[in-house]
Every structure is written in C-alpha cells, then in structure tokens.
C-alpha cells in the first residue's frame, strides 16, 4: 500500500505535475488499468509470451499461404516409405516433412492449430460469458436464489466432466460443434463460482454502498461499479481457461473421440505421431507437440503476468 502511494511522486512525475499545474491544464490521472498495463509490460516472460502467441496465431491464420502444398493432396510416392522419403527438408519445401498418409505435415499443423486455437477461444468465451452472468446474478441477488443456483453448480461439479463429455460425443456423434458445446458447458462452473465470490465481496465494499446511498439504480450499479471491478479476475481466469480448453480438446482427440479426419487438431496430430513413433518418424510427433506445448506455456505465462499486473497485492 505504501509503495503504491509513494511511487507516483518520483521526481519525474513531480516535475510533470508542477508543469501541469503552472500551465493550469487538467492533470491526467493514472487509472488502475494504466497501472496494470505498465506492470504487465514490465513482465518479460509475459511480454515474450505475447509475442510468441501472436506469431502462433499468425501461423494458424496465414500459414497456408506460405507453402505451395495443401493439407489434402497425398504424395503417393512418399506414402509407403515415409521414413526414408518423408523427413523434413528445406529443399523440397516440405519443411515439417510428411505425415503417415503422405500429406504435407506443415499444412496439417496449420490446419490443426486453427481448430485447436478456436476450440480454446470459443470454449473459454462460452465459459466466461455463461459463468460471469450466472455468478454475478447469484452473487448480487443473493438469498434463496443464490442458494439454489450455487447448489446446482455443486451438483454439476460433482459429475466427472470428462465422462459426460465422452458420453455426449458417443451418443450424439463426434463433431466439432458437439465438442464446443460439451467443453463450454462444463467449464463455466468454476467461472461462476469465482465471479459469485467476487460479486459478494464487491457488494459489501463501501463504494457500492455509497452508490446505493446516492440512489443509483441497481442495473447501473452492476454495470458501472460491479462489472468493471470484476473484469480483472475474469480476464485472468479467461486466459488460464484457454489452455485448459485446448488440453481438454487434445485429450479427447488423442483418445480418438474428438475431431475426425480430414479435420485435425493438435491432439489428433500428436496422437498420430505417437502411433508412428516406433517407425522412426519422430518429426510427426515433434512438430505438433512443440506448438501445443509452447502455446500452453504462453497462455500460462500471460495469465500469470496478468494476475500480477491486475492484483499487485497478491504477489
């Protein structure tokens, strides 16, 4: 607390302040967001992760324009003898080599990245939206409504979600949309708990009381006071949720229940790579695995950085 108060009065700031005062201009304040941004930018690991992640996103979006191969054409010459002919090579343009059925692995990884990342983002988005809404309503309304809503969450939570997800995929057929729904539906539970807790503590803060005393209508209190103060937690949790979604999808795909050929994802690619590991075509495992691991790490670093930046008290 004290260093927070002392900080703003470094010499440079004081000079700035004096200048502003004499000029009679309005002094620009440092919002908590600006503070957080500064702390985040100062966090090297997080900033490096942002850069890497941007590159991976660019790769998944535009990677297929760089190569002359697509992800469907099968090179029949390579097919039977991938180990000898299909290794990665810079000369023939197959930078990541071939997969087991003779397709260009680079194009396949681009395709897989697209699906994995979108599963992660969409899944996290659904979870965050549903969870935030559910949690803040439960927390703000309180009383019996809160009790019923949260007991329901408890019940859902006690069901092993992987089991439910697999059951859904088996019963309703394996499709990407089913995967989205299944993952999104189970992941909002944690979110709603976190948001509810935050809302409860915000509700008792004096500035919310002050708004009530002023006579600000309830919906304005939620929008102007509760939500902006909730945003930090939601953002942090959302960044940590994305890799979790990707992991879940990969695990499901690894089991062979997720995306289906000719679609693919990191999990499916890794699964294929593992199967052919014994034939000595290690690159088939290495490339998708690299992307997968690096992305997960990036998200975790960014999430960590955001948490430190948004809530400096917890460090």
């Amino acid at each position: 607390m004290t260093d927070k108060l002392v900080q703003p009065f470094s010499q440079k700031r004081t000079a700035e302040l004096a200048e502003n005062l004499s000029a009679g201009g309005e002094v620009k304040g440092r919002s908590l967001w600006a503070d957080a941004r500064r702390r985040f930018v100062a966090n090297r690991a997080a900033m490096a992760s942002v850069v890497v992640l941007v590159l991976i996103f660019a790769f998944s979006l535009f990677g297929d324009h760089v190569t002359q191969f697509d992800n469907e054409t099968i090179d029949w010459d390579v097919m039977g003898s991938v180990k000898e002919l299909g290794a990665p090579s810079l000369t023939n343009g197959h930078w990541f080599g071939f997969d087991e059925s003779g397709r260009d692995l680079y194009a396949r990884v681009v395709q897989g990245s697209r699906i994995s990342l979108s599963v992660g983002l969409v899944g996290a988005f659904i979870a965050v939206m549903v969870g935030t809404l559910y949690g803040s309503v439960a927390g703000f309304v309180g009383g019996r409504v809160d009790g019923v809503m949260m007991r329901l969450v408890d019940i859902f939570m006690s069901i092993p979600y992987m089991f439910v997800l697999i059951l859904l995929l088996v019963v309703f057929g394996r499709s990407i949309s089913m995967l989205f729904v299944g993952i999104g539906l189970t992941a909002w539970l944690d979110m709603s708990r976190i948001v509810r807790g935050q809302t409860l503590s915000l509700k008792n803060r004096e500035f919310v009381e002050a708004a009530v005393a002023i006579g600000v209508p309830t919906h304005r209190i939620i929008l102007r006071h509760i939500v902006p103060n909730l945003l930090g937690v939601v953002v942090v949790y959302a960044t940590l949720l994305v890799p979790q979604m990707i992991l879940t999808e990969s695990f499901i795909s690894f089991l062979g229940l997720g995306v289906q050929e000719p679609d693919t994802s990191w999990g499916a690619l890794i699964s294929e790579g593992v199967k052919s590991m014994n034939y000595g075509t290690l690159w088939q495992l290495a490339f998708p695995l690299c992307f997968f691991v690096i992305t997960i790490f990036c998200f975790f670093f960014i999430g960590d950085g955001l948490r430190d930046a948004l809530d400096p008290k917890d460090r």
Binding site: G29, S31, L32, W33, R205, E206, F207, E209, A210, A211, A213, I214, G215, R224, H225, P228, N229
Partner: peptide, 20 residues
C-alpha cells in the same frame, strides 16, 4: 435521496477505484 447524502468511514474504499 438527493436531499440526504452520506459520507463514509473509509474515504478511499468509498470511492470506486476504477473511476476518476
């Protein structure tokens, strides 16, 4: 409510930290 206003105990906590 506009005829009666209130001042609170903890001055910092009674101001929304996200607002100017």
């Amino acid at each position: 409510r506009k005829e009666m206003q209130m001042i609170f105990q903890d001055p910092l906590a009674s101001l929304d930290p996200r607002m100017t």
